[in-house]
Simulated assay, not measured.
Amino acid sequence: MEFRQLECFLAVVEHGGIVRAAAALHLAQPSLTQSIKALEKELGIELFHRIGRGIALTPAGSALVKQARQVLRDADTVRASAAELAGAEVGQLQISAMSGCIYHPLLDLVSAFAKQHPEIPQRITEADSEQQLAEWVREGRVELGFGYLPAPGSSPSHPEPELDITVLGHDELCLVVPVELSAQLDDPIPLSGLPELPAIAVSRGAVARQTVENALRNAGVRTSLGVVTEHRELELPLVSAGLGMAWTTRASAEGSPSVDVAVHSLDPPVELTHGVLRRRGHLAPPAQAFLDLALSSAERND
């Protein structure tokens, strides 16, 4: 078995077919098809069902995806470690962050890393949920995942025995309301004195929503749901349009000057904890260097 065969297999999975995968790999379609067939023959299993002009993973193919990603990730780590011992700057930094909550320290880290390691390209992807973020790290699609963590003592939305979790800091959660209502509210606003507005919330299971619901429950407060969205970036525009109130971090609210909303602190304060997920074991040198940079930055800001 060759690494290239696994790369071809994963390309077909990730691009949804032979045609797009061949274009992404800059291969002729017959060459890619032959590579997949050779891998199937060597493994003695069928990886894809051929359905008309399309393909779909077989159960055996689905089971191979995680292992194939791990093999290629481990191979990249070995290459990068060997190059580091030889004094060469090689490899690629692959990280992911939560959609809608890429906090500004991460942007600072990306900039600082680029200055320190200009020869190492960075690939940053956005995850739609904490579950997806953990899955990408666990499967080896990325080495580091930055996002929000369940509060201590709460039930985690995704138990992760295979991952190491490091806390980097905390973000203040604020109440965001339409501007015309702001003058009627205290600042900070007591949880017991929330306006009678429907809540705009992200999907159930998200750490931010769990954190808000726990705080409201502890304060004996109930609210009505107005809009539930999977797209976190829609919360502020929906508030601005007068559809309700929402909870978001101060950094996110104040970092969107194009959206006309009012931001109020909460009493008692409510915080989200942000951190980094990584698979247990050795990290490739670029990822380790980025993690070290993140930890040193967190210590300075502590």
Rank of each mutant, 00 (worst) to 15 (best):
M1N: 03
A11V: 06
G16W: 12
L32P: 11
T33S: 14
A38W: 01
L39K: 02
E40Q: 13
K41C: 01
H49Y: 10
I51C: 06
G54Q: 13
G54V: 06
I55N: 01
G61T: 06
K66D: 15
Q67L: 14
A68Y: 05
Q70H: 14
V71P: 03
T77C: 14
T77M: 12
A83V: 00
A88G: 02
L93G: 04
S99C: 00
C101R: 02
S111Q: 13
A114T: 14
E119V: 08
L133M: 14
W136Q: 10
E139P: 09
E139Y: 10
F146H: 02
P156I: 01
S157D: 09
E160Q: 08
E160Y: 01
E162V: 00
I165A: 12
V167M: 14
L175D: 00
P188I: 07
L191W: 06
E196R: 10
A201G: 01
A208V: 01
Q210F: 07
V212Y: 00
V212L: 15
R222N: 12
R222S: 15
P237H: 01
A251T: 12
L266M: 02
R279P: 07
R279F: 04
D292S: 14
D292C: 08
A294V: 08
A294T: 09
L295D: 06
L295Y: 00
S297P: 01
N301A: 13
